[in-house]
Design a protein around this nucleic acid. Structure first.
Lengths: 331, 331
DNA sequence: TAGCGTCAAGAAACCGATTTCTCGACATAC
DNA sequence: GTATGTCGAGAAATCGGTTTCTTGACGCTA
């Protein structure tokens, strides 16, 4: 593999000049520059990123640590991040923490070892610690969920308000015993959606009851069990607010097993729109979150912070949108 | 950030000794070793990956270049790769080529610049060129689709046979005019599935007709148009073989718009199982590919090739499985 | 024409690891 | 007691870029 010295030798100049030409940071004689460019092309020269990064003490790789690659919500965020990063010459490393604090920690370590230019993370839980990154002044942006000790920008959705609206929507549609299946305690979105659900019940002057609330991991299997459990009790719910799209699958599966038809017999609203949501019968009413936009905003904030580390931390809250379909329409 | 010299100074030894202790490649006096380890811990020393990689001329990062992050099939592959890589101390960089040869090329360049230890790729098309990687003796494994010039291991699914079986399944279920919506020409899986479809028709002694075949990109929108188009003609098909899971969504949407009920009126079989496939009504019959396993096998082959670059290129063909649900059952 | 400022380009230092080279200490063999 | 071998650890080279330092050429002004 050709090195900068090879190029320099071929062009009859010093390595320093080659570096200057290729980085355009300084003016060089046009004639020399042309020779350098030609030599580089002829040798198919590609700078060694290790050497460059070592000297510059910086890389052009952004780490994106998400909770679940198999969840379309997070992959949509990833696309948003990527599109912005690409445009600025950064590449994005996607890390799948799999909702596992240990895996997440490992990826934080990788980001540290590889001296990522910046990190975008959706923290798996309360104990996520990005202190080590900040010590190395690697900027961090939290997306979807805030960090316990916010020390960078944060991009959220007003998910509590959205949950409140979704709950009120179910009330208005004529459902009476509305249950909530949410994510693990300590995960902010899960807690917020539960709080919003209670807000909604309160606003509608309904009593909330612990018997109507279930928690599970943010996966289908857990939600399936939780839903089955809700309907196993004497006073069955007649509606369900489900806190994410993976859980929606589990909940719908449980309802199908129980022979309950969504919409007519059980109102269902889930968080996160998905390509298949209009296709299930009845089509699924969802709270659609602007995932792609969240990714874009997070990346923009990160790039801004890379450029100027002294910016004040900001919090951006985007809003979700209720998409009414048939699963929350009686009759 | 502490460097190896800082650790050496604190432990009262030379940097070389620190390196030897921490890498365990050579024996050192236990007393010294203990001091080194203590010093490293006290300073929270983390080796600089740039410096290490520069010297070693190798990294421990695998690049995984997939066609579409939003497609669960590919994310399942990613998980398989990741689980194997993790266990061997490699980290995985997920790159989303987005079915775009230009993006793909850019990521190949990134893998090259970052001197990835190896690359796993599902080539976007015929013109994918990994020659540059091979020149640098970076091992390459192709997954899901073969490379035009195979120069590494390949992990495939016998998708042609699976398409043949799926087509015969539709014939046996009593459908007569079976159409096929497949991916872009030049993408091997798309061509193979079409060929398998024709195999199936031939085996059933049915005439195949170009009027019953449509190509689109591997996305929902394209499949939706293609399906609409198929049903716009006087002699409508009564069954549909769809070549991947994103396209299935588009096809089902089109059928819904046309007021055609899958199963009873139009038999549907799609490639790729998805969490939502059992939930649509009627539930979707699919050809399930062992995506996670494909990822695992690809990663194992890559690691083996990293360890020993002179291995003969192999091709592993896994088999798919037809999961019969209601969308292909008449009546 | 002397003196000063500007600028382009080469020389050399530097980033932080790993690894080869070298040397000294000690043990064993003759 | 000397020669030889072994082994552990420090010195120094090395990876391939970037960037500072230095030098020399040139132009302008007094």
């Amino acid at each position: 593999m050709a090195t900068i010295s090879d190029v320099a030798a071929r062009a009859g100049v010093s390595p320093a000049t080659v570096s200057r030409v290729l980085n355009g940071k300084s003016t060089v004689d046009p004639g020399l520059a042309e020779r350098v460019v030609a030599a580089a092309r002829e040798l198919d020269y590609r700078p060694n990123a290790f050497a460059r990064n070592l000297r510059r003490q910086a890389s052009t790789v952004l780490a994106l640590i998400i909770a679940d690659v198999e969840n379309p919500f997070f992959t949509a965020i990833a696309r948003g991040v990527e599109d912005v990063a690409q445009a600025s010459g950064y590449s994005v490393v996607l890390c799948n923490a799999d909702d596992d604090p240990a895996k997440e920690r490992r990826y934080v370590d990788v980001a540290l070892a590889e001296r990522a230019a910046g990190v975008i993370i959706s923290p798996a839980g309360v104990q996520t610690d990005v202190g080590a990154l900040l010590e190395q002044s690697i900027p961090v942006v939290a997306v979807d969920r805030p960090l316990a000790a916010p020390a960078g920008d944060t991009v959220l959705v007003d998910t509590r308000l959205a949950a409140r609206q979704a709950t009120l929507h179910l009330v208005e549609a004529g459902y009476h015993r509305i249950a909530c299946v949410t994510g693990p305690s300590g995960v902010r979105t899960a807690d917020d959606r539960l709080a919003g659900y209670r807000d909604g019940l309160r606003a509608a002057k309904r009593r909330s009851s612990a018997a109507l609330v279930r928690r599970a991991d943010y996966r289908a299997a857990g939600a399936q069990r939780a839903t089955r459990d809700l309907f196993d009790r004497p006073e069955r719910p007649d509606a369900l607010l489900v806190a994410n799209n993976a859980m929606a699958i589990g909940a719908l599966q449980a309802l199908a097993e129980l022979g309950l038809r969504p919409g007519t017999e059980v109102g269902v609203v889930s968080f996160d729109d998905a390509p298949w949501a209009p296709l299930v019968v009845p089509s699924l009413t969802v709270v659609s979150q602007p995932a792609y936009e969240m990714g874009m905003v997070a990346a923009q904030l990160l790039l801004a912070r890379i450029a100027d580390g002294s910016r004040e931390p900001t919090t951006t809250t985007l809003s979700a949108q209720l998409i009414e379909r048939d699963s929350s329409r009686r009759g």
